[in-house]
């Protein structure tokens, strides 16, 4: 049984979580640098598709595509932890694209970083405006 008071407390918790992201966008840079091993990241054919405005941050549809890529990693710079997912494409992959649904704690940039077979990296970003965050509540 959840009392009214507990419900209020949960709401407050959610508010704190959505305030946090402002200071942590450097964490996404660090996470991407850790993924690339510090290699330079260029803009290339990698594409990331997401809704401009997401009404519910708990489930935001997102698609990534990078022709020829070995892997595509997704990072969200405004979440408590920036890592979202990494797709590794195997020999039986029919394309170098994938779609999933992700949680976003608030309005933020979402990055797709593609690792190419030659070891180089390409990146694209998209801003998603979130009206209800998807991390705490």
């Amino acid at each position: 049984m959840i009392t009214r008071r507990e419900t209020m407390a949960l709401g407050l918790g959610a508010a704190t979580v959505t305030l946090l992201p402002i200071s942590v966008s450097a964490a996404a840079d660090d996470a991407i640098a850790a993924y690339t091993g510090g290699a330079s990241v260029t803009e290339g054919d990698v594409m990331i598709t997401a809704p401009e405005i997401a009404e519910n941050g708990n489930t935001v549809p997102i698609s990534v595509e990078a022709p020829g890529a070995a892997e595509i990693a997704i990072y969200a710079d405004g979440n408590p932890t920036p890592g979202v997912a990494v797709f590794k494409f195997g020999p039986a992959a029919g394309s170098h694209r994938a779609s999933t649904r992700i949680r976003l704690g608030g309005t933020q940039d979402v990055f797709a970083v593609a690792k190419m077979p030659d070891g180089s990296f390409q990146q694209a970003a998209v801003e998603v405006k979130v009206t209800i965050g998807g991390c705490g509540g």
Binding site: A85, G90, A93, S95, R97, A98, T100
Partner: peptide, 30 residues
Amino acid sequence: CEYGGDMVIDMELEGAVSANPYVEFDIMVG
């Protein structure tokens, strides 16, 4: 996802993937 013994997609997920994880991808049919 493996097809005929070959890897199609190998995905690492973090907590930022939504509840009831949904994944859509393509397979090369053989």
